[in-house]
Design a protein around this nucleic acid. Structure first.
Lengths: 167, 167
DNA sequence: GTACCTGCAAATGTTTTGCAGTACG
DNA sequence: CGTACTGCAAAACATTTGCAGGTAC
């Protein structure tokens, strides 16, 4: 559930604000974990979040990482996405782009985010047709990169790309 | 990868045929597990598949269930779907309806399958626009059941429904 | 000062694996 | 008959939890 926190703020600021609002304590561990989680746009695993957090603040424990991840997901700031890895990833771009889907490149395993308004509309229509009201949509497309197959290099392969603006 | 086995056969027959083609042995355990997996259209967990298989054939072990599940997924006959449960489910309808998505009712947790050709088309276009060729699409929509909210009962709630025919 | 939070380590739950014995073809 | 397959139990993981001590407020 999204809390009633100003959505124009950065996810990191919203996390702090939500803690304050709910009377949760602002510990150095929570600060570090939140900073690292929203420090860039990459998707990350719990384990890599722990490793990166510990580099900044050795006091961070695995248990606190899991507890903070659960909080951030509950707060609607982070989304757990399952892209076929052994453990789920967390998507820090969810709060700012709640409707994007993911391409997973079958060749290089890179994750590319995308958004398409027509898909949103059609998904909503189909859902209504079946007597439901949509709450959360999760679309993953495993795909091969055309440029990679033709030229042997994958132009997208550097890192996750920001979703295109809505048309 | 789908093997070069006649796709007009039932998934169960295709499983046996694939075993034969690959020179794998046709054991009573594999027979039981395959029968149970494709015995109805419900999605199931590894653990429930084990329980149901053992009811028919006490010789079935947990290890063999996991090994056979991996084989059936590799053969393209079963699909692992992650619908937010603690462990993944397996979808026996995948071979016959490879393009369907899933509604997950937020209220009753029931899983309803659906298919929409317009979505297929739009997904394909979006993927191509980004320089990819789609291989596998996975669409889950968490939703609330309108009838449930209005009348207190969920008409869909009996069991997974077969996808609608393409329009 | 006192909840609330944390780290630790043990518990949990799921899936995988090594190995000695079994049975399919 | 040989080799692939199986069951068992242990191992390997990922995640959660109980509890004693620490700390934000």
């Amino acid at each position: 559930m999204t809390s009633p926190v100003d959505s124009s703020m950065t996810p990191q600021a919203r996390a702090y604000e939500t803690m304050r609002t709910q009377g949760l304590r602002f510990t150095s561990q929570r600060k570090t974990i939140t900073e690292v989680a929203f420090g860039n746009r990459e998707h990350f695993s719990a384990e890599s979040l722990l490793a990166r957090s510990r580099r900044r603040n050795p006091k961070v424990s695995r248990a606190t990482v899991y507890r903070t991840l659960a909080f951030l997901v509950r707060a609607g700031l982070l989304r757990q996405v399952d892209l076929g890895q052994s453990s789920p990833l967390y998507d820090p771009n969810f709060a700012e782009h709640p409707r994007h889907g993911h391409f997973v490149c079958v060749d290089c395993r890179k994750i590319i985010e995308f958004h398409d308004h027509c898909l949103d509309v059609r998904e909503s229509i189909v859902t209504k047709d079946h007597g439901f009201s949509p709450r959360r949509v999760s679309l993953q497309i495993e795909a091969t990169c055309d440029a990679l197959r033709e030229k042997g290099t994958c132009p997208q392969s550097t890192r996750a790309v920001r979703p295109r603006p809505k048309k």
